[in-house]
Amino acid sequence: MRKFLGFILLLAGLNVAAADVPAPEQLVRNTSKEVLEVIKTEKLSPSDKRFRDLVEAKVLPIFDFNRLTALAVGKYWRQASPEQQAALAREFRTLLVRTYSTAVGANKVQEINVKAVKMADADTDTTVRTEVITASGQPFPIDYRLLKTGNGWKVYDVAVEGVSLVTNYRTSFNQTIQKDGIDGLIKALADRNAAQPAKTSAN
């Protein structure tokens, strides 16, 4: 009986340990694993439509592009109408998805190590650190910043080797807005996105 109790306790302990992995860490872990499996087993290249479908289905849902865009646009976000905000988020999302696909294509990713996250249950904002191991070159860190929203945990910024996307785009976004206004930035982003496919195919 005692043994049995011990066994039950042990099982309960294991369950607690499994449940102890914080939700944001689990989210990044699962997404990384799924993407990596598909890239490795099917040898998809980022120009494939299937690859883009994979990104749409697996990667995009864990991002909050509205918030990410709002941070990159900075103080002008509040001056933008909801329609403008939606257009900005849409165009910025297209740019980032293309960048992501190019990055995955340029670096042959072999493994993604997700580091354990230490956080309190009440925290609503956290960083999940990962290390990307490629076939050539040194491993490099990618950090995801997540916020607990009404729809669960969502990524609102990504830092590659310590370079935050949100911060890096903010300067050029602000320059464009000061020169051509918010509609000018929407147009510049749309032009940039339209120009990109021609550029990659020429290379």
Partner: peptide, 15 residues
Amino acid sequence: EETMQAAAFGDEYTF
């Protein structure tokens, strides 16, 4: 560089 070119927007110098 390939990734940077895909990511770049606006003024390359500030980016």
